[in-house]
């Protein structure tokens, strides 16, 4: 009965060397104000830490934000870790950051539900998360 009334749980993760999190904190507050529960991992996390935390928190969405340009190897590692989980995770994977179009296509092909550029307005992120979660649930 309650599946649709429970707030969306979203984990926002920063992986790698990138030392800025003002942007992700703005996104966190916007999502909270839209009624979501947001868990922010803090800076400089490893893919291992992030996947472990996302499993423990049983989130609906895992948003991974990176600016460092190392997005392909990092996502490669994330896909490996997800594949190695004993059971398929429930979360929808979303990427944030700037990357060439062919990388974006490659990530989508491998299961990233959406890629958001750096300039995506926070309200658009809210919309987008709701949409991709609804799409994942419909599948």
């Amino acid at each position: 009965m309650t599946e649709n009334t429970a707030p969306l749980r979203v984990m926002l993760a920063k992986i790698g060397l990138d030392g800025h999190d003002r942007g992700v904190k703005v996104v966190a507050r916007t999502l909270r104000d839209a009624g979501m529960e947001v868990i922010y991992t803090g800076l400089h996390r490893t893919p291992e830490q992030v996947i472990e935390a996302a499993v423990q928190e049983d989130v609906d969405v895992l948003g991974v934000s990176l600016l460092s340009g190392a997005h392909m190897p990092i996502f490669g590692r994330i896909f490996e870790l997800i594949d190695a989980l004993p059971s398929a995770p429930r979360f929808t994977l979303v990427a944030g950051g700037v990357m060439p179009e062919e990388d974006e296509e490659e990530l989508r092909r491998r299961g990233v539900a959406a890629v958001m550029g750096q300039d995506t307005p926070p309200e658009a992120i809210v919309e987008m998360l709701r949409r991709v979660v609804a799409e994942t649930a419909a599948r």
Binding site: P7, A28, V38, I39, G42
Partner: peptide
């Protein structure tokens, strides 16, 4: 909003 920012410092 009923939303929340959770466990930030633990994480």
């Amino acid at each position: 909003s009923g939303g929340a920012i959770l466990g930030d410092h633990i994480r």
